[in-house]
């Protein structure tokens, strides 16, 4: 049984693409056949985060409009054999996607893959609603910050009303992924705590991704953070979140940065 998972948030810049790449890679490393689909038509970035920007020939819009076959547009990851990418178009806009075309592509992907991870664009417009349309599960990416939490609440409302599942009287399985979390600042009362966000949004917690330099380092070189530095705090947090998606019971811990004596002394990594 294939699963369609949408990674969404409403607000931009909270870590949807980073999380899509990291979770997709972690699921693939667990032996699943995974495709990560970029729905951000016009502003594609998943290809860049996954280091496949020079291998894009055809894209989602070409497949939706029937100008290319799915197999021509899929890009197989060079590091993890079971991981593929379906890039978005950079030159078109979101109106180039049609509901019927998206449904056809998703159904075709369901036959080939165990997990279809849809990286949603920001906002609540057509691109975002099409990305969530066929989802069985949703990862709501949220920063511990007022505007992000508000937008997540809005997106949860859309997941409960605008998806195919909602219209059929079923529910999309929703999970909260709290990113850019700083446990120290939360403890000092400078940042919303995990419990605060959970109480307000009232959906189960998938994981806590600590604010970390490793995320930028991984994107600099075009590698999902789970592949680039698997022992880093964010990579471990994403790997645990992926195991929870697979149905394992893993206690949520707060992964902490392991700092060397040198980095403690000089305040930055010496690696």
């Amino acid at each position: 049984m294939s699963k369609v998972l949408v990674v969404t948030s409403g607000k931009g810049g909270v870590g949807k693409t980073t999380s899509s790449a990291a979770l997709g890679a972690a699921l693939a490393q667990a032996g699943k056949n995974v495709v990560v689909v970029d729905f951000d038509v016009g502003l594609r970035n998943l290809d860049l985060i996954m280091g496949a920007e020079r291998r894009v020939v055809f894209d989602l819009v070409n497949v939706v409009q029937g100008d290319a076959k799915l197999a021509q547009a899929l890009i197989r990851d060079k590091r993890v054999e079971t991981l593929s990418l379906l890039p978005a178009s950079q030159t078109r806009d979101k109106d180039a996607l049609t509901p019927e075309g998206v449904e056809r592509v998703i159904n075709e992907l369901r036959e080939k893959f165990d997990w279809i991870v849809c990286d949603s664009p920001a906002g609540i417009e057509r691109g975002a609603t099409l990305a969530m349309r066929h989802a069985d599960m949703a990862v709501v990416v949220t920063n511990p910050e007022v505007s992000s939490v508000r937008d997540s609440d809005r997106i949860i409302g859309l997941l409960d009303s605008k998806t195919a599942k909602a219209e059929a009287g079923e529910t999309v399985d929703k999970h909260l992924l709290l990113t850019r979390y700083d446990a120290g600042r939360a403890a000092r009362g400078e940042m919303l705590k995990v419990e605060d966000v959970l109480e307000i949004l009232a959906i189960p917690l998938l994981g806590i991704i600590p604010d970390s330099e490793d995320v930028l380092k991984a994107s600099n070189v075009g590698s999902p953070v789970t592949l680039h530095n698997p022992m880093s705090a964010p990579a471990r947090a994403y790997a645990e979140a992926a195991r929870r998606l697979l149905g394992e019971t893993v206690a949520v811990t707060m992964p902490v940065e392991k700092k060397s004596l040198m980095s403690r002394l000089f305040g930055r990594s010496v690696a």
Binding site: V146, R150, D153, A186, G189, E190, M191, L192, D196, I200
Partner: peptide, 17 residues
């Protein structure tokens, strides 16, 4: 401590929305 303020503002706003 500014986080409790954020929490309270959000709770009211979201109930309203």
């Amino acid at each position: 401590r500014t986080a409790p303020v954020a929490r309270e503002r959000l709770q009211l706003l979201i109930a309203h929305e």
